[in-house]
């Protein structure tokens, strides 16, 4: 293993985050506050409970997931797309690094940043609602797995993109709708049976459900299903990345 290589990429990527620390933290904190004002206080006061949980508290896991998914995809996709755009990727490709090492460096850094931001959003929530975390270890598990899986997906998007528009396209057209429709602000169990079935095709439902369960022991699907689904996403993402490096797709001519 080229540990120095992994460390170099990881430190480089984290350094990029630290250079823009203001916007890295300010933007998730501000949007969380806004969500709490709109959904928690203004509208939430009219909604008593959701699935047995006060509405303000109910949206906390969804809000964290919303931020973590978006941050993971955008960090990881930008992290690998930018060197391709500027041409500095030549150095990564000519270095004695295996696929796994490159992925560990880039995805590890993107996922770390997501976990940090997720934690910040969680801390911000504590100012608005009393927090209760029933299963902290499960919560950490879901937070990390989601950050890693969606950073892997971001990495794939960053390699697939051949322009800045495409870099925005997938998050805008797929990730954001799936997150909003995945039960960030409501329980999919509230939906009519048909739309409930449709929702189950949305992978994000399982992430939010499992994550919310770790807080309140209430989920839209059971815990086992959530764990199985998120593991399946990770495997699929890893498979795609293995294929990318094997064929050199968009990386090696």
């Amino acid at each position: 293993m080229n540990y120095h290589g992994i460390k170099a990429i990881y430190a480089f990527e984290m350094g990029r985050t630290l250079r823009t620390i203001g916007q890295s933290i300010a933007s998730p904190v501000i949007s969380t506050v806004l969500y709490f004002i709109v959904f928690g206080s203004a509208m939430g006061s009219r909604i008593q409970t959701m699935d047995g949980v006060p509405y303000g508290a109910f949206i906390v896991p969804g809000l964290i997931m919303l931020t973590v998914l978006g941050q993971s995809v955008s960090n990881a996709s930008f992290g690998i797309y930018f060197p391709r755009f500027t041409g500095t990727i030549y150095e990564i490709l000519s270095a004695p690094l295996s696929v796994i090492e490159i992925v560990l460096g880039y995805v590890g850094a993107a996922a770390s940043k997501s976990v940090i931001i997720g934690t910040i959003v969680l801390a911000t929530s504590a100012f608005f609602v009393p927090l209760h975390i029933a299963h902290p270890l499960w919560m950490v598990f879901f937070l990390i797995m989601t950050s890693v899986t969606f950073s892997l997906m971001g990495f794939i998007i960053g390699i697939w993109s051949d322009g800045f528009e495409k870099l925005q396209l997938i998050p805008l057209l797929i990730i954001t709708p799936l997150t909003f429709l995945g039960g960030s602000f409501y329980s999919v169990k509230m939906l009519p049976p048909f739309w409930y079935k449709v929702s189950l095709a949305n992978p994000v439902v399982y992430l939010i459900s499992g994550f919310r369960w770790s807080f309140y022991e209430h989920g839209d699907v059971n815990l086992g299903t959530s764990v199985t689904m998120i593991s399946a996403f990770t495997v699929v993402a890893l498979g795609i990345i293995a294929w990318i490096f094997k064929t050199g797709y968009r990386l090696r001519k």
Binding site: N2, H4, K7, A8, A95
Partner: peptide, 8 residues
């Protein structure tokens, strides 16, 4: 230093 690290 980053380059040196990349090359192990």
């Amino acid at each position: 230093n980053f380059s040196r690290g990349l090359f192990g």
